[in-house]
Amino acid sequence: MTPDKVAWIHELILLVAGFFLLCSFGLIAASQVMGCLRVYVIQSLLLAASAVLLGIDYHSADLWIVAAIAIVAKAVLIPFLLRRTARHDMIARRELQQAISVPMSLLIALALTVLAYYIVDPMMDHTSRSVHANLPIGFAAVLIAIYTITVRREALPQMLSLLAIENGAFFAGIAIAPNFPLIGELAAAFDVLMVVLTLGVLSTQIHRLSGSTEVGTLSELMED
C-alpha cells in the first residue's frame, strides 16, 4: 500500500471510532425503545466497518469474517429476534423514563470517556495508530454502556446496553487482537444471540405478569 493510502485508511479508522463513540452517547440519549435498537444496529455496523478497515490495515482476512459475523448476528438477527420474542407494545413508540436526566447523563458519559483514556494510557506505548483509535474508544464505550444499564429503567434498553458493552469490548478487541481465534468471535456472537433470546423471553414474561417492563421500579426484593 502507498503511504497515502495508509493515511486514508487510518483517518477512516479514526472516523469510524469517533462515530462509534457517538453511538454510545446516542444509546443514553435515545428516548424510545426503537431509537435504542436503531442506535445499537448502527453501532454494530460501525463495528463491522472498523473490522473491515482494520482488516485492510493489518492484512488480516480474519477480520473480514468478524465483520460478516457482526453484520449477520447483530444487525440482522438481533432486531429480528427482538421483534419475535419481545411483544409489540414493548417496542412501541413511547418516551422512556430515566433515573438521571439526559443532559446530566451525557456529561457523566463524557467524564467516563476521559476516565477510559486514563485507564488505557499505561498500555499504549509501542502500539500502532489503529490501537490508539480503537482501544480507548472501546473502553469508553464499555464504561458508558455500563452506566447506561444503571440509569435505564426498562427491560429492553437495559438489554441493548448490555449488548453494547460487548460491542465496545470487541471494538477494542479487533484492534488489539486481530488474530483472536475465530472460535472466540463465534462464541461471542453465539453468546449475544443467546442473551437476546433469554432476556427477550424473560422480559415478555415479566410484561405478561406485571403489565410493564419497568424493571427499575420492581423493588419487591429490597433487603430490609
Binding site: 472501546g138 464499555v142 455500563i146 448490555l162 465496545g168 469490548a169 472466540g184 461471542a188 453468546d191
Partner: peptide, 13 residues
Amino acid sequence: TLGAAIAILGVLL
C-alpha cells in the same frame, strides 16, 4: 451477563 461482558474485554486484553 454484564460481568461476562466486562470479562471478555479482559480476555481480549
